[in-house]
């Protein structure tokens, strides 16, 4: 099964350095957002705000049907404590409006600090808590965890403003520089996610043998599930199945072929 790490980015200034670094090409898809891709990474330029981020997740999901997806929201954020230029992965995302909270799960070693990220509706200038402030994460996260297992959904932010550095001074070129300065952290995080998606993808890969069965006989949906599971067993247990053998040649339908596989696997017990 294919797998992909999907980056959801709000601003063009955040996206551009990533598009260049990963050599992404524009995909001619959904007209409401721009999607860029290469063989391993897909980037959606979502626009600002929670609903835009959630919509982008949906669009990418639609383009990557049947694929194991990891999701990474990348962007700049304000912070009540961290220095400008600090990258961090969210270990808690709080939606300031609803106070709903999510806890991203780390099954890899983060290459940067982790911390709380508060998603706000208006740009935060008070920085009242020692947390990060952004405008997308809660919308992104709640949409992405509906498409993938929680361990594959993360949010990476780079601090662009804090109580000592006003958000008013955040320019397009400053954003560009901030993202460029953290490309290696972003790359490492993407690599960790890629490894995980690859692992999950191998769990559901179908193989050549299944293809041969499906070409020769017709199977109901239930029978196909049974067949897939049985063929996996033969593969793991290293049982040889030869669809050209007499046993299989005499099978007139999927049901009888399935029976032969079942019998073969069962006789494996004593050998």
């Amino acid at each position: 099964m294919n797998h992909s790490v999907n980056l959801i980015v709000a601003l063009k200034a955040e996206a551009q350095p990533l598009i260049e670094f990963f050599e992404l090409k524009a995909l001619p898809v959904d007209e409401t957002i721009s999607i860029f891709t290469n063989h391993e990474v897909t980037l959606a330029l979502a626009g600002m705000g929670k609903s835009a981020a959630a919509h982008a997740v949906q669009c990418v999901k639609n383009t990557n049907q049947g694929c194991v997806n990891a999701w990474l929201n990348i962007g700049i954020a304000g912070h009540g404590e961290f220095d400008v230029g600090q990258g961090f992965l969210a270990n808690r995302i709080v939606d300031q409006t609803t106070m709903k909270t999510w806890y991203p799960q780390f099954v890899f070693q983060p290459v940067c600090r982790t911390g709380t990220l508060m998603t706000v509706d208006k740009v935060e200038t008070d920085y009242s808590d020692p947390v990060g402030y952004d405008m997308e994460a809660s919308g992104f996260y709640s949409a992405a965890v509906n498409c993938s297992t929680i361990e594959l959904v993360h949010t990476y932010k780079i601090v662009s403003d804090n109580p000592r550095n006003s958000v008013a001074k955040v320019t397009r070129s400053k954003i560009d520089n901030l993202i460029k300065s953290k490309l290696s952290e972003i790359r490492c995080t993407i690599d960790s996610l890629k490894k995980l998606t690859a692992e999950v993808a191998t769990r559901s890969s179908s193989d050549e043998l299944l293809h041969q069965f499906l070409q020769r006989w017709r199977f109901s949906v239930t029978q196909q599930i049974q067949l897939n599971s049985l063929l996996r067993k033969t593969n793991v247990l290293k049982i040889d199945i030869d669809v050209e053998s007499n046993e299989y040649m005499s099978c007139r339908n999927g049901k009888s072929a399935l029976k032969v596989v079942e019998r073969t696997v069962e006789t494996h017990w004593r050998n």
């Binding site: 599971s229 247990l237 494996h268 017990w269």
Partner: peptide
């Protein structure tokens, strides 16, 4: 699905 113990019939 890749584990030989689980794959037993």
């Amino acid at each position: 699905p890749d584990d030989s113990f689980i794959a037993q019939p």
